[in-house]
Design a protein around this nucleic acid. Structure first.
Length: 273
DNA sequence: CCGTGGTCCTGGGAGC
DNA sequence: TGCTCCCAGGACCACG
């Protein structure tokens, strides 16, 4: 089971790209097709070429490359996106190339093209529509049990669906929601409003723990993550429940798979109640 | 406003 | 071996 780019993978990607891009002048920017999930900005190459990268950052599952022209390129890796840093020529699934003054060639590689690339001028937190409604970063202090209790009040949707809602908390995807709910022993099927306060209090550190552990694991294998062959054996085999239907849960129960909103949910009916 | 379900896209695995 | 079928997923949109 290959890992999907959720918050930890994007964080790892941003950290891995930084040494290649920070302070570098973009000498050429090339797109190899008109779109990913949606069109590339028509003026992407024109606005980025000749600019110097001032910094990289992340918000939710988006990576942000900022330039000295106060332009901000915002990329989303979708489900199969990654950056290739080893250079060479563009392959079938390389859709965007950034060339730097130091001679690096960085390809955005995305076979399923579920990713996206946008470009905004000025503070992206204010000017990029998708950022305006985002909930708190899960690793920040703004993400806490009080926030969850407030947000979940009177909500009848299952807690699994609520945690995937980026306006509730920004950056969680299917894998880490399943993992965190298992760690906190909460059933993914329970209506959000019905989850007891004590469980919400356990859920917050569970989410922070699974994310931090994944970032730490990603950081330790950064070279692999960014490499072409990089099948990044990468914490992908250490899931507690994700992709483990029929296997044993830590508690001795058996991991089950159910479908919620058309997506697989892995959980342990024994300890997650 | 709320909750649900369809849509996009293609690689890869299962099954015949 | 080679074909077909179906699943994986985040963000967004349309519906009731």
């Amino acid at each position: 089971m290959r890992d999907m780019p959720e918050l930890p993978e994007v964080e790892t990607t941003v950290r891995g790209l930084a040494p290649f891009l920070e302070g570098q002048r973009l000498t050429a920017v090339t797109t190899f097709r008109p779109d990913l999930r949606r069109p590339f900005p028509v003026d992407l190459a024109q606005r980025l070429t000749g600019a110097t990268v001032t910094g990289l950052s992340r918000r939710a599952k988006y990576g942000i490359v900022s330039t000295d022209r106060d332009d901000h390129m915002i990329f989303h890796l979708g489900m199969s996106g990654r950056w290739r840093t080893e250079g060479g020529e563009a392959g079938k699934h390389d859709h965007l190339l950034l060339e730097t003054g130091a001679g690096h060639r960085l390809f955005l590689h995305d076979p399923r093209r579920f990713g996206s690339v946008d470009l905004v001028a000025g503070d992206p937190l204010a000017s990029f529509a998708a950022f305006v409604t985002l909930g708190p970063e899960p690793l920040s202090d703004d993400f806490n049990a009080a926030h969850l209790a407030r947000t979940f009040a009177a909500r009848r949707a299952p807690i699994k669906a609520m945690l995937l809602d980026q306006t509730v908390v920004a950056g969680l995807g299917n894998i880490y929601v399943c993992e965190a709910l298992n760690m906190a022993r909460i059933s993914p099927l329970t209506a959000a409003a019905d989850v007891p306060k004590a469980k919400l209090k356990a859920l917050v550190p569970a989410i922070k723990t699974v994310l931090a552990a994944a970032i730490a694991a990603g950081g330790s294998t950064l070279r692999d993550f960014l490499s072409p062959e990089g099948d990044l054996g990468y914490f992908a085999k250490d899931w507690r429940v994700y992709g483990r239907e029929g296997e044993r849960c830590e508690c001795g129960g058996t991991v089950a798979r159910v479908v919620q909103g058309g997506r697989s949910t892995f959980h342990c009916p024994e300890c997650q109640r």
